[in-house]
Write a protein that binds this DNA or RNA. Structure first.
Length: 318
DNA sequence: AAAGGACCCAACCGCCGACGG
DNA sequence: TCCGTCGGCGGTTGGGTCCTT
């Protein structure tokens, strides 16, 4: 997208004086306004105008740029699509986990969530939530805001995502990197994390849980002794593998007194929920049925030092 | 190969708060 | 204080693409 703004574009740059353009646009009625998909020419005009004059004042910007669009439309097009730092492509595992984590804290505050995923727009995150997450709530025949679904997300999917991230990290470390060339930084950072959390804890959540003033301690992070199996294929859309069932169950039992400290009341007390409304195995079974046929298309991005630092940076900014 | 359904995402809509006159 | 404008946000939708049968 950035190469649209190269110097060769200057010939077609719409850079006439705003006053002159205002005169032309002043009599424009609502009927004259274009709607629907943006054309290349419109994109070009918007990019060029912003490159020369900057953002803001979207209504006058639309007029001055010669665009027969509302200011809102221009703003949306720029923020969600044309901005050079917009990041496109699949939502990574780390981003998925962040979205789930942040959504559990803030709900549908998409713009707020998007602030912590650089390059991702609120629209993109919202779409991700609706197409990927809400779909599963629908399949589970429960409301996305229900306790059942939130618990499933929190005690099944999020740990599995974290596991998968860790598994990917391990895979990357052992298969894509020559151990002899691993930097001291890598080892030191991971070792620091592991020292803090013991050998059984997930590296990723801990890596951002103690950063900054606004500490985030993901409640799904295993904090007591025990073993968390690393699932090579766990994510939101995978079938829950029975081998991990008892381990997650242990996780629930062991962490019963610690879960929910950092979340709103709607998410607390898994034991109460599972005992009173549905036992964990039943929920897992239903989850299996619901998710079994889906194949994930998430990218297999790997969890590495850069990712850890990235997340640390994000949570520093919170 | 074609039809129908499911999925995805860009774009629009309506509402609300901030701000200035 | 009221009113109009603007920007921002979350919810919704239309249509293109992909997948399944």
């Amino acid at each position: 997208m950035g190469d649209k703004m190269n110097s060769s574009s200057s010939n077609s740059c719409i850079d006439m004086s705003c006053g002159e353009e205002d005169d032309q646009m002043m009599n424009m009625t609502m009927d004259d306004l274009r709607r629907g998909p943006w054309t290349v020419e419109e994109d070009f005009a918007l990019i060029n105008y912003i490159a020369h004059h900057g953002e803001g004042r979207w209504n006058s910007l639309a007029r001055c740029a010669g665009l027969k669009r509302t200011g809102k439309s221009c703003r949306l097009r720029w923020l969600n699509y044309l901005r050079p730092d917009v990041r496109r492509g699949n939502i990574t595992l780390e981003e998925q986990l962040l979205i789930l984590e942040l959504h559990s804290r803030w709900g549908n505050r998409w713009s707020k969530i998007a602030q912590h995923l650089p390059g991702r727009t609120d629209n993109e995150i919202k779409n991700y939530w609706r197409t990927r997450v809400q779909k599963h709530a629908k399949q589970m025949k429960c409301d996305v805001n229900s306790k059942q679904f939130k618990d499933t997300m929190r005690y099944l999917w999020m740990p599995r995502l974290a596991e998968r991230i860790q598994a990917a990290s391990t895979t990357k470390t052992t298969t894509t990197r020559d151990p002899s060339t691993l930097t001291t930084t890598t080892n030191t950072l991971n070792q620091n994390n592991m020292d803090h959390i013991g050998t059984n804890q997930l590296v990723m959540p801990q890596s951002y849980s103690e950063v900054g003033n606004n500490q985030i301690k993901p409640s799904y992070a295993k904090e007591n002794s025990g073993t968390i199996a690393v699932s090579p294929v766990s994510d939101l859309t995978d079938c829950y593998h029975p081998i991990y069932q008892t381990q997650n169950q242990d996780f629930l039992v062991q962490n019963n007194n610690q879960i929910g400290d950092d979340f709103d009341g709607s998410l607390i007390s898994p034991s109460g929920y599972f005992n009173e409304e549905m036992d964990f195995e039943t929920m897992v079974e239903e989850n299996n049925q619901c998710l079994g046929s889906n194949s994930g298309d998430f990218s297999d991005s790997l969890w590495n030092v850069e990712d850890i630092l990235f997340l640390q940076q994000q949570f520093n900014n919170m």
